[in-house]
Simulated scan of single mutants.
Amino acid sequence: MKTVPVEIVTPERKVFSDDVQMVIARGGAGDLGILPGHTPLVTTLKISGVRIRLKDGSEQQVAVSGGFMEVKPDKITILAEAAELPEEIDVDRAQRARERAEARLAATGAENFDFRRAELSLQRAINRLQVAKGKELK
């Protein structure tokens, strides 16, 4: 089967780099399945798990907290605000972040409350927990 090189990078580091069979990512307009030779495109990415089908047919997930994906016929680059492999995710920390975000959302009557920020914090925490457990964010 054909493969295409994929790089997932954040401002701090390169999170993933390998030749893969396919990338499935949640773009701004919906889910995208990218195969080698795909038509060039650039899209925003939502907070989600990016699924990567490796050369051997197995799948790898990466928790991505927004960013952009650039697709060329011969390379896929994901520029993410933050990204983590499942084994890098601190599940206890993610669970605490989820609980804090849920508590903030429950207390919406507070002065200077930033609903969108709390909502995004909750999405990031849920995404990290689901990728760590091998599930996809719905």
Rank of each mutant, 00 (worst) to 15 (best):
I78Q: 04
F68T: 08
I8P: 00
A25G: 05
R98W: 10
V4I: 15
Q21R: 14
D114T: 13
G30R: 03
A107Y: 00
Q60R: 12
Q95W: 11
R93V: 02
L35C: 06
L41I: 09
E59A: 05
S17T: 03
E136M: 09
K135V: 02
V20C: 08
R116A: 14
I34F: 04
R100A: 07
A118F: 06
V4A: 12
N112I: 03
Q123L: 13
A94Q: 04
E87M: 12
A83E: 00
P86E: 04
K75W: 12
A125H: 04
Q60V: 05
L45E: 05
A107K: 04
G109F: 04
G37S: 09
D19L: 07
A106S: 13
S48F: 12
T10H: 03
E84K: 03
K135I: 02
R93I: 06
D74W: 13
I8L: 06
A94R: 00
Q61R: 11
F68H: 07
P86G: 01
T44Q: 13
V42T: 07
L41P: 02
G49Y: 08
V6E: 02
D114S: 09
V131F: 00
K2P: 11
G27Q: 09
K75I: 10
M69G: 11
I78V: 15
P5Q: 09
V62Y: 01
R98F: 07
G49F: 05
T10A: 03
I24C: 04
G30K: 07
I76W: 09
I34Q: 02
A80V: 07
E59V: 11
I89F: 09
P36A: 11
T77C: 02
S48K: 03
G109K: 01
A103W: 09
D18E: 15
K55N: 08
S65P: 00
F16E: 03
R116I: 07
V9R: 10
D74M: 10
R96C: 02
R93M: 08
F113M: 15
V71C: 11
V131Q: 00
T44R: 13
T108A: 06
Q95S: 12
G27I: 07
V20I: 15
E119G: 00
I34M: 04
D19T: 10
K135R: 10
R93S: 06
L129I: 08
P86Y: 01
T44N: 10
Q61F: 05
E119Q: 14
H38Q: 14
V50K: 06
M22R: 11
M22A: 12
A82P: 00
V71Y: 11
K72L: 15
N112F: 14
V64N: 01
V9L: 14
P11F: 10
L79S: 09
I78P: 03
P5E: 10
Q130C: 01
T77V: 14
E111I: 14
D18Y: 11
P11K: 11
D90V: 07
D56R: 05
K72H: 15
F68C: 07
G49H: 07
V42M: 08
L137V: 15
L41M: 15
A132K: 00
I8E: 03
M22I: 02
G49L: 07
I89R: 04
E7N: 12
K75M: 12
G66P: 01
R51W: 07
V6K: 02
T3I: 09
K14L: 14
A83L: 01
V23N: 00
R96N: 06
G37Y: 04
I78A: 02
L105W: 07
